[in-house]
């Protein structure tokens, strides 16, 4: 009996072994290196590294207001993505889960933005949003709302919101897809039984769909936080983090420290602090929603 139990536990470990081995070699080893480097001053080239203790961390925390502003910007975009983007994605997934017309078409179309290259997305949106020749301002003028026309990407008042909206547009397809997969897991019988009992659509939604979807909502929430906090390619292509620091985000700062200023140690310290913040936020969300689902 004891032998069998031991064998069973051993077998359990075998399941995670391949993942752990790959992870240990290709993640943990570089991670330890980054961790060591964060207490050094290093330009990324010379064989010489100078140990400076926790000075890098101290500088990130107390002497780098732009870093924290970029964090706030990313946080702002994340809040918009968590609420607006995911609400839209959830609604669309619900719609496409029902027996609506052309639903197969919609399912394909909604996944176009994630497939499109950032280059195309950047070019198209710049064309739409251009202050002088852009489509959006053209339409606004046509329907008599010329006073709303703006230099969407270079006006500090609108730049961050514009970037956030484009980011949400590019990313909602993922939420849509995962929600859709999640909705497949809800047995149809549950709805049928409720309907026989005379429950309306809203009741079903509130008492069947939502509770059963909580784990998936948490999952999408965490993936949204990660994806949005770490976003930078599209922002780089649209505004370069400008005007001034209005659309600056943490990953762009990390790259600026590494490539622009050749401060590898500092970039590593920034990465670690960023990671700790992300873990904290995600953990809070995981725990918080985990309790709710119970």
């Amino acid at each position: 009996m004891n032998y069998l139990k031991l064998k069973s536990t051993f077998e359990n470990y075998l399941f995670i072994l391949p993942a752990v081995v790959i992870f240990a070699i290709f993640y943990i080893i570089p991670f330890i290196w980054v961790f060591q480097l964060s207490v050094f001053e290093w330009d990324g080239i010379s064989p010489l590294k100078t140990a400076i203790g926790l000075a890098n961390f101290k500088e990130v925390i107390t002497g780098d207001p732009i870093w924290w502003q970029s964090m706030l910007n990313a946080g702002y975009i994340t809040i918009i993505a968590l609420t607006f983007q995911n609400a839209v994605a959830f609604f669309l997934a619900l719609a496409c889960d029902r027996e609506i017309r052309f639903k197969n078409w919609f399912r394909v179309i909604f996944f176009i933005p994630p497939v499109l290259s950032e280059v195309v997305v950047g070019l198209v949106w710049q064309w739409i949003l251009d202050g002088n020749f852009g489509l959006l301002n053209g339409w606004l003028t046509k329907i008599g709302l010329a006073h709303l026309a703006k230099y969407w990407l270079s006006d500090p008042a609108t730049a961050l919101n514009t970037v956030a909206i484009i980011h949400c547009w590019k990313g909602f397809g993922w939420g849509f897809l995962i929600f859709l997969a999640g909705l497949q897991g809800i047995p149809r019988e549950l709805y049928e039984a409720a309907r026989v009992d005379g429950a309306n659509a809203f009741y079903c939604f509130k008492n069947i769909t939502i509770p059963l979807m909580i784990p998936v909502i948490v999952l999408v929430g965490i993936l949204t936080i990660l994806g949005t906090m770490q976003a930078f390619v599209l922002i780089m292509a649209m505004t370069g983090g400008g005007p001034a620091y209005h659309t600056q985000v943490p990953v762009l700062r990390i790259y600026a420290s590494m490539q622009g200023a050749s401060r590898f140690g500092y970039a590593c310290a920034q990465s670690l602090i960023f990671g700790v913040i992300l873990i904290t936020i995600s953990f809070i969300q995981y725990r918080f929603s985990g309790k709710q689902s119970r």
Binding site: Q126, D130, G131, N132, F133, Y151, L153, S154, A159, A237, M238, T239, G240, G242, P243, A244
Partner: peptide
Amino acid sequence: LANGLVTMINKTAEQLFANGK
């Protein structure tokens, strides 16, 4: 200065100038 210059990337600037805008 052209409007929107502060966030313009150089490839966009080249496009505009090349096309007489």
